[in-house]
Design a protein around this nucleic acid. Structure first.
Lengths: 150, 150
DNA sequence: TTTAATGCAAAAGATTTGCAACATG
DNA sequence: CATGTTGCAAATCTTTTGCATTAAA
């Protein structure tokens, strides 16, 4: 399992602690560990997976705390969610503008960056939207592993 | 509620009936009505909404048939799903390559098209993916209605 | 010490399944 | 007619909630 670069994780944790203090949200042991787990992950885990990965370290942790914490962190803009249709919601602590590549076979999701994409102008009369917050591209396809195993 | 252009709906229905016959899937009254409902909708409804909209026309319809049918149609590539994180899965019968604009306040989703976007080259070493199937852009922002009501 | 957060267990919600009755090809 | 599909009810799975206990500021 590939993990986020440790320096990057530390940075994210710093930002997280700062944000919590600023907003008067208590820095509990559980919150720190849950955030760290998401920050270290590169595979965009869902609630259950995060819970499973933490159980060794925090044996008394309960699943509902993981749920509550993840959505709290999302509300604080410290995490981003990916809706993946039939699957459960998945979480990402990467706050730099980025895009996703998704394997339609195995469901793996990985981040990527593209200056070219970021530079594209949207058609002016977009329609419904007035204030644009973010543009996110999802590229779907088959990943190396899944192609091999067919 | 804005509906899909009737001609377009008819086209989609034709294609749907053809596909069902080709794949040996029976064309039941329920399946036709469920597909029509999605084909007419422009708001990307979820299972429950589709069920509610059909109840008048089909009083004995059951929710589980709607579930079963929608996922069947998706497996037959006659519908596309949108995963929208905390919400339920939503369905779209628009099979032309298109993109989505999402209001982060009210959750409204509407289709849009962009030649410019479709022309952008992805960075060559995308990473994980080998065979690319589709590229989909999601633009998030605030819609006209929600901006007014703040 | 005050207030918010956790863990537990129970509740609520959403989705799926087994099976007899029914409709389609 | 044979087979696949539906509706119902029950089962399952996921997520949320109430509340007493515990921990953070």
């Amino acid at each position: 399992m590939i993990k986020t670069d440790p320096q990057e994780v530390e940075q994210r944790l710093k930002q997280f602690e700062l944000a919590c203090r600023q907003k008067g949200v208590k820095l509990t042991h559980q919150r720190i560990e849950i955030f760290r787990e998401v920050a270290e992950a590169t595979d965009h885990p869902d609630t259950e997976q995060i819970y499973q990965r933490l159980k060794n370290r925090l044996p008394t942790l309960s699943l509902d705390t993981v749920y509550r914490t993840l959505w709290l962190l999302k509300d604080l803009d410290l995490l981003v969610t990916l809706g993946t249709s039939r699957e459960r919601t998945r979480f990402d602590a990467n706050l730099k503008g980025h895009h996703h590549q998704v394997c339609t076979k195995c469901g793996a999701i990985s981040d990527f960056y593209s200056d070219d994409l970021d530079k594209v102008k949207l058609p002016e009369p977009l329609g419904m939207l007035v204030e644009i917050e973010a543009t996110h591209v999802e590229v779907r396809g088959i990943c190396r592993n899944c192609l091999k195993s067919t």
